[in-house]
Write a protein that binds this DNA or RNA. Structure first.
Lengths: 200, 200, 200, 200
DNA sequence: AATGAATGAGCATTCATTCAT
DNA sequence: AATGAATGAATGCTCATTCAT
């Protein structure tokens, strides 16, 4: 008698199409027409499932942030020691190669730029950044404790690692191939190790 | 009697107005009307001095990149040792406080996002990144030589520092106040110091 | 066992939802989705019971006009003399308080505006206005006969009363609270009484 | 060196085109394209001179209200006695024939409907209604004083006249030709006269 | 009878660019 | 050099209507 709702699936398709489009053209040039075309849907349908274009963006940010969380859940299960966990985390986020997702990275960079000016995007972006920051703090605290080092500078250390990661995303998208291969993960790990040697 | 051309001044005013506007609204929302209004000029005049909107952006990227070079010229004159030069450089780019220029930083972040998709912007962005990278390589090479360390990992070290700086810019613009005060300069310096202790 | 058609009930529900919506948002903003939502039905079902949106409007006009007729049927039964009938009629249409129906009044005003441009709405609107006009003529003729006055100006008198009533509806909807309380019914009755005294 | 602004003239042309369009199609169907076409201008130009469509409407309401005021200024100069002034006023607003402006009347009716739901339109509409009401009160007070009658019911009398006038506009637009010719002005005057005879 | 997804034409609005002055 | 009106294509969004289920 009634139609079965397929809203969730359609919404996912649309969000996925936005990710692809935004990675390629940026948010402003990712027009509804273009997204719809990439999703194989009619423009009107996008507004049936999402009230505004901004709402699709918000959903994408949530999805991307969730992806990061999922990766952590996976790695946390595998790694044994705090050191392994930290290194696995860094590799999961920065290592190029098999698990790398350039589209998601490029989309994330565009979202970061959008966050500078759209308060609503900024709010969710900051939520994601905050979660990542807290996770890094926890991982670092565990690690430092294991090696018998004081946890004094964990905040700044975590912030530095976060900046290194975000900067690596930016440079990978806007200046691909200009920097040494695989520098980001290596340097992030070296950064942490260096701090251990340097601290009293 | 003679009409002296004020083209150069006008162009500078327009570029400056674009910087202010882009920092506030992003490039896409920085309309010719808005830029003109912020510069106190008429919209038509902008197209008299610049053929297209993109041309103004290109000029801004050059200006911003040049600003960085100028800062180096200043610091290179003051600093005595390679270590002082390196630290002065890092502080010049990352230190918050007196010399800090949030508008330029925000504009640079937006330009970085624009570089992902506009090939012409990307070209100049990469030029600026390349110059910064080369400068960092030179500073690091000098420094390592002074302390008697091998210059093997200079490339990756420079790339890591560059990423940390760009990431710090991004986070300062999109998530202001979320991270510890002054972490960026401190961590950049700690990053370099740590590598010295760690390397054989 | 047998499916009894609930078409008539559904149609009434839809028309009622249109009345509520039109009173609140006007006809143009009364979208099918909104009406359906207010009726607790699905949008598709509205087009099952009515071919077009305009058809629902036409039905509403008929309903509203019929309501007026019903009120007359009720009052005609109660009132004894022509004077009582006339006053009862005026009160039924204009008196504020218990019997007042602001939603119907507001909807009627919107329909009046719609009638200016939609020929099909205009036709039914005019039918309703014509019926009211005829009723007023009859009531006035009876009344004047009773008091021994010539029925010469009955047409103009009825037209004037009609205009006063429609204008009162308009002002009640678009400028509520600006005019003295209960002025409309009082002035309509005074209007009629005045004519008796004035006529030779 | 510079272009001479023609903004005021263009704005007037646009408002005039809206009046013509609104009278014919109503506000919702008066699209920017249609108005522009009727004004012989490009659609974009309408948004150069007015920020939004609603702003054009607001300007039209002001214009129409101002027209009414102007008519009073003219008639006030001509008429000698309070009675003449009152009758001249009624004729100026209601008399069909030479001075009549069906386009303005139809536009006014549509605006009245729009006022029911758009708060901003309602505010200006009520301002116009309020001015007209105050004017009627003044005219009636003067008149009643002249004929030695108490001014007790001036408010309700003025409200009744106002309703009669607005209703006459509505009926003239939505049901043209259905009512006796020239009934409105005649009945308005009869209404006032009747009250004199009736009051003690 | 009923659902709700889907369509596509139409809308107000924005904006880089042009041009007459 | 400078102005500001003018253009028109493009965009996000709305909505009556259709249709498979």
């Amino acid at each position: 008698m009634s139609k079965r709702p397929n809203t969730e699936q359609r919404r996912a398709e649309i969000v996925s199409a936005l990710q692809a489009t935004i990675a390629e053209c940026g948010y402003a040039k990712a027009t509804i027409q273009l997204i719809a075309q990439k999703a194989g849907l009619s423009p009107g349908l996008l507004h049936y499932h999402f009230k505004t274009k901004g709402e699709i963006l918000l959903e994408l940010v949530k999805t991307l942030a969730g992806l990061s969380q999922q990766r952590y859940a996976v790695l946390a299960a595998t790694a044994q020691t705090p050191e392994e966990r930290l290194i696995a985390y860094i590799n999961a986020r920065l290592a190029t190669g098999e698990g790398a997702n350039p589209t998601a990275v490029a989309a994330w960079v565009m979202i970061g730029a959008e966050a500078v000016r759209q308060p609503e995007v900024r709010a969710i972006y900051q939520q994601a950044i905050g979660a990542e920051f807290a996770l890094l703090q926890a991982l670092l605290t565990d690690y430092l404790q294991t090696v018998g080092k004081p946890a004094g500078a964990v905040d700044r250390l975590a912030a530095g690692l976060l900046a290194l990661m975000e900067g690596a995303f930016q440079l990978a998208s806007a200046a691909p191939g200009m920097l040494p291969n695989g520098y980001a993960a290596a340097m992030a790990i070296a950064f942490v190790s260096g701090q251990l040697a340097a601290e009293p």
